[in-house]
């Protein structure tokens, strides 16, 4: 059972990078590909239907960390205190930027929140470098972690670009098939996969006792098909096609 939950944990972490990675990438590319308001609107509209279904993988990851590895939850998050606080603030401004940018009509209002979407995406994408490195080694502000942040940022920007080329090729000038998006998703998840592979023995050693794990398994695992089904439904509903640009964008 502890191997199954390790697989769930690894899937949630890798899934977050593969999915939310392109949302953050699109946010990073806002000043690059979205020099006009209309282009930024179309970039945000391209990712908007996926954002809620993507970011929630990290919420689920944190919950699983608490439920399955309670002895690691405190030390890992506390050990990364400044990084976690900064990343939370970035996450908050990125999200509210998306929710608020179209709520008032003025161009300056929208430009302001677009700026925060970019800043929040940048902070989150970069923060994953020190966070991953720190979670694996225990030292959050190590030069290696700071360099890894550059890598995660670039990978997510690349993933975001591939996503746009798949869903809204007019914005990138080149079209990419679904296969390319799959490849960039795997590439974006590589740093996370590496860290989780290295930490596997440590994680497995700290699994919560059998009673708790059984309760979790009985309660959660029967719903796993529903959770995956809901995610698949999102991708089926919003796949690119003739009418994709006409999806209403609330963001």
């Amino acid at each position: 059972m502890d191997v199954i939950w390790f697989a769930v944990f690894a899937l949630l972490l890798a899934g977050y990078f593969a999915l939310e990675g392109f949302d953050l990438g699109v946010g990073l590319l806002l000043p690059v590909l979205g020099r006009s308001r209309d282009r930024r609107d179309r970039m945000v509209a391209a990712m908007a239907p996926y954002v809620l279904a993507n970011e929630v993988w990290l919420v689920a990851l944190a919950g699983t960390l608490f439920g399955v590895y309670p002895l690691l939850e405190g030390p890992v998050l506390f050990g990364l205190y400044p990084v976690v606080v900064a990343m939370l603030l970035c996450w908050i401004v990125r999200d509210t930027g998306l929710w608020f940018r179209r709520r008032l009509g003025g161009p300056r209002w929208r430009a302001f929140w677009d700026g925060l979407v970019w800043l929040g995406s940048l902070g989150l994408a970069y923060g994953w470098g020190p966070a991953l490195h720190g979670a694996a080694t225990g030292s959050p502000l190590h030069p290696l972690g700071l360099m890894l942040g550059v890598v995660t940022t670039l990978l997510m920007a690349f993933h975001g670009w591939t996503f746009l080329a798949w869903r809204a090729p007019a914005l990138t000038g080149t079209a990419r098939p679904g296969r390319a998006l799959l490849v960039s998703a795997v590439v974006a998840a590589l740093p996370a996969l590496a860290v989780i592979a290295l930490s596997a023995p440590h994680l497995l050693d700290h699994t919560t006792p059998g009673t708790t794990l059984n309760v979790l398994s009985l309660m959660v695992l029967p719903f796993a098909p529903v959770m995956l089904g809901a995610q698949v439904w999102v991708w089926r509903t919003f796949r690119p096609g003739e009418d994709a640009p006409r999806t209403p964008s609330f963001f």
């Binding site: 809620l52 689920a60 919950g63 309670p70 708790t212 979790l216 999102v234």
Partner: peptide, 30 residues
Amino acid sequence: GDVFGAPLAMETLLAFFLESTFLGLWIFGW
């Protein structure tokens, strides 16, 4: 954590994960 973590894990996996996914479908699936 062996007690308190379980309901919080269930909240994120069984409740919020689905809530957020279905809300995205409701808003953008109009």
